[in-house]
């Protein structure tokens, strides 16, 4: 489903991603972990074709990431999500559905179902400039779910959410597992990752340190956090 082959991204003298290779199979719940500035978001941006790799290649759904068609059935939630302040959450979801060429009646049904799923009933028609960061994040996740994507790329999906919101998002992501969805998760919340994902990769300063099943990365009696700190600090 996702493949990175010797991918490198340089910004002048800074190497953001250094010769990284890994692949993610269909139906896998994958977490990309790393400290701030490790290159996680750069990998996501390269996957979505937002930026081009300096060398190497990336593919989504078997197609090069430079082709627009590779993003068919892909939902994306960005790290610093912004929604036009003059739109309502409902209008934003509708726009996302229209861009995916979903018919009007289907779009209405899907948006209604998603508003319920993200727990925003009653607030969907108010303007985005009245929303909190957490509410915007929920609508962003809702927008990523429009069109029943097969792959979800989530960059810090729980950023700005309170503990109850984090739990709700976790439960929502767990419920999507039964639909055979593949998830690519960028997150700092290691405890959440441990609960949701089956596989993880840890990168630091653009280099891939490990990529394996979480059960293989975390030994008995250890927490993912301990392994993460140990690997990153060397």
């Amino acid at each position: 489903m996702i493949e990175l082959n010797n991918t490198t991204k340089r910004y002048d003298s800074l190497t953001a991603v250094d010769n990284v290779s890994f692949s993610i199979r269909k139906g896998e719940y994958f977490a990309l972990l790393g400290p701030n500035g490790a290159g996680k978001t750069t990998i996501v941006k390269m996957l979505l074709g937002f930026t081009r790799p300096t060398s190497g290649s990336l593919s989504l759904n078997g197609l090069p990431s430079t082709q627009a068609d590779c993003r068919t059935a892909v939902g994306y939630l960005s790290e610093n999500l912004h929604i036009p302040p003059y739109l309502s959450g409902w209008q934003y979801l509708q726009r996302c559905a229209e861009l995916l060429e979903i018919s009007r009646s289907d779009a209405m049904d899907q948006c209604r179902r998603i508003v319920e799923l993200i727990g925003m009933q009653g607030r969907e028609y108010t303007k985005v400039n009245t929303y909190s960061k957490g509410m915007i994040q929920r609508f962003g996740l809702g927008a990523a779910l429009i069109g029943n994507p097969k792959l979800l790329i989530l960059d810090e999906p729980t950023a700005g959410l309170d503990p109850i919101g984090i739990r709700e998002i976790r439960q929502l992501l767990e419920s999507l597992r039964h639909q055979g969805m593949t998830i690519f998760l960028n997150s700092h919340l290691l405890s959440e990752v441990e609960k949701i994902c089956d596989t993880a990769a840890i990168i630091n300063r653009g280099k891939l340190l490990v990529k394996d099943k979480i059960s293989a990365i975390v030994k008995d009696g250890e927490a993912l956090e301990d392994v993460f700190v140990m690997l990153v600090k060397g």
């Binding site: 068609d69 960005s78 861009l99």
Partner: peptide, 11 residues
């Protein structure tokens, strides 16, 4: 406004 990344993350 985030519309650029929203549009270009679609096919």
């Amino acid at each position: 406004d985030g519309m650029q990344s929203c549009i270009l993350s679609k096919p």
